[in-house]
Design a protein around this nucleic acid. Structure first.
Length: 469
RNA sequence: GCUCCCUUCGUCUAGCGGUCCAGGACGCUGCCCUCUCAAGGCGGAAACACGAGUUCGAUUCUCGUAGGGAGCACCA
């Protein structure tokens, strides 16, 4: 067996049966943070030993998700299906040492065992029929079972849950090798974690029940047991398990919905973990402050509005230049021709106080990249069809046409002048212009709205607005 | 059914025996600011599941109850 160093080594071990979902992403994040915090290694391992359900597309989807989130790994990805010889060898060793045995029991016998145990109010467990017998049965290719200790208890100190104790007589002789020649999960993880010298096993708390069994296997192999940290689940808004039906669960769906990877990461890191009252964490701060022992024991609910708040926080905080490429991606996805409008960077600045996601931003930016699609009749009646709007628009039209320098400040100056000279409040000047520029009554500050429309188009739109009065 | 785990405002959480008639954040809400929508500023409502112990003193420790979750596969 490989000897373990004091070095912190964590691993994220998804099974490739679907995309990377938010629960998995948080597990990956915590594994990554724990490794980075201690200057150790983060390993990616694909648990594809169930070749019925594993697909290459799922592997790609998971890798994509990790890449988007920026969770880089130091080793891997390793694949269990390429390590079959190794599992066989370890199983043979166990067999030779008498710590495992071949079992020829039929599925029918096993089913009956389960049923009678349940009917007697007991936990279904294997009765050890083949422990001593070991007689080949015709037509049955045997499985290999681990000989679990009969007495005593297994105690471990979970870094999240605390002390957990398990009676060995609750455990039965689990199958470590299937009749089809493939290892089972509980066996493969142990061999993998051992070979990869994983020092901290961090995973979802749906695995706590497996841990005592795995510890017994470690001990049978004469290996040091790693430390365990079992993370509570992430529930949906209603407190139910996250499901694809009612929730966006795939990490890449969040990209499509207009979220920033670091906003998602920041949201996820605070979901079940805290560092005093701090809400906003840079990547480096997460690494500096993260400690697995501060993770909460209880499940938590996924709250979209808080994620949205964080996302907007980063939209406001980040360098617009860094946001521009991602906005462009969204603009193109909504069918906008980016070459037909302003620099996306300027759009970010104009809209980031007004939206929560880049998707929303792209939608709202439509007014600058495409002709006005529809005119809001109510807004026209209110802001265009009044006594003063006509004159305001006429004046603006002339002033814009002769403006030497087309920029927000100059535009703002013109608007101020119009208000002053015509003795009107800002509302009487800005709103008619806004309707002319956008077809509706809502947009960013009027000077930016006008500026981003561009001089020629602004003039054209004012003319059109005039004709619609 | 059996085993294990969990339980502070609607939500995420701080709290690690007295500092708590419980703090922060999101959300909700009042006011201010204001060219619309936002953003921002200043306020507000809002929680220790319940019951016994231990203790001079429990949100904090122990045990029950209730509620929730997970696992009990030749799935991971």
């Amino acid at each position: 067996m490989v000897s373990r160093s004091m070095n912190v080594r964590t691993r994220f071990a998804p099974s490739p049966t679907g995309y990377l979902h938010v629960g998995g992403a948080r597990t990956a994040l915590y594994c990554w943070l724990e490794a980075r915090h201690h200057g150790g290694q983060f390993i990616l391992r694909v648990e594809d030993s169930d070749r019925e359900r594993s697909t290459d597309a799922a592997i790609e989807a998971i890798l994509d998700g990790m890449r988007w989130l920026g969770l880089d790994y130091d080793e891997g990805p390793f694949y269990q299906t390429r390590r079959l010889d190794r599992y066989r060898q370890v199983a043979e060793d166990l067999l030779a040492a008498g710590k495992a045995y071949r079992c020829y029991c039929s599925r029918e016998r096993l089913d009956n065992l389960r049923k009678t145990a349940m009917s007697r109010g007991q936990k279904p467990r294997y009765d050890g029929h083949c422990r001593t017998r070991n007689e080949p049965a015709p037509g049955i290719s045997p499985v290999i079972r681990f000989r679990n200790p009969d007495h005593g208890t297994v105690v471990f100190h979970d870094q999240v849950k605390g002390r957990i104790e398990w009676a060995n007589d609750e455990l039965d002789d689990l199958i470590i090798f299937r009749s089809d020649g493939f290892p089972t999960y509980n066996f493969a993880v142990v061999v993998d974690d051992l070979d990869m010298a994983v020092s901290e096993v961090i995973r979802g708390d749906d695995h706590v029940n497996n841990t005592p069994r795995q510890i017994n296997i470690y001990q049978a192999l004469g290996a040091t047991v790693p430390s365990f940290a079992h993370l509570p689940m992430i529930l949906d808004k209603e407190g139910h398990k996250l499901s694809k039906r009612n929730n966006a669960v795939g990490v890449m769906e969040y990209r499509e919905a207009g979220f920033l990877p670091h906003a998602l990461l920041n949201y996820l890191v605070r979901l079940g973990w805290s560092h005093g009252d701090q809400e906003v964490f840079s990547r480096q701060q997460m690494i500096d402050f993260f400690t697995i022992t501060d993770v909460n024991k209880a499940a938590s609910r996924f709250d979209m509005s808080k994620l949205a708040w964080l996302n907007q926080h980063y939209l406001k905080q980040d360098d617009p230049a860094s946001l521009a490429p991602e906005l462009t991606w969204h603009l193109q996805r909504t069918g906008m021709d980016v070459s037909q409008g302003p620099d996306p960077e300027a759009v970010v600045v104009a809209l980031r106080d007004r939206v929560h996601t880049l998707k929303e931003m792209a939608e709202r930016a439509r007014i600058w990249y495409a002709p006005i699609a529809e005119w809001d009749e109510k807004a026209i009646r209110k802001h265009l069809c009044n006594a003063t709007a006509g004159n305001v628009l006429q004046t603006a039209l002339r002033s814009f046409a002769s403006l030497p320098d087309w920029n927000p400040d100059a535009i703002k100056a013109i608007i101020n002048t119009i208000a002053h000279e015509q003795e009107l409040g800002m509302g009487k000047v800005a709103q008619p212009l806004r309707v002319a520029m956008t077809g509706g009554g809502v947009s960013p500050s009027i000077e930016h709205t006008v500026y981003l429309v561009g001089r020629d188009e602004a003039i054209r739109r004012i003319e059109e607005a005039l004709s619609r009065r």
